[in-house]
């Protein structure tokens, strides 16, 4: 594949697009991990939402 005299522009454009998508994916994954850890910490402290308490009482 010969990208011609403007190869640097083409490669940079694709690299930028991949970096932006990678950034989005990383943000979502790390955000998810952070939130899950916080929810686990609340769970360990015995703090539960009203709907969760009701579900536990039913079972």
């Amino acid at each position: 594949m010969n990208l011609g005299p403007h190869a640097a522009f083409i490669v940079t454009a694709y690299a930028a697009a991949i970096a932006i998508v990678a950034g989005l994916v990383a943000w979502i994954v790390f955000d998810r991990r952070h939130l899950s850890r916080m929810l686990d910490a609340f769970d360990a402290q015995g703090i539960a939402r009203r709907s969760e308490r009701m579900n536990e009482e039913k079972s």
């Binding site: 010969n2 990208l3 011609g4 005299p5 403007h6 190869a7 522009f9 083409i10 454009a13 694709y14 697009a17």
Partner: peptide, 11 residues
Amino acid sequence: QGATVKIMFIH
């Protein structure tokens, strides 16, 4: 446009 048209596939 030569090979620069490849940028269109992401742009």
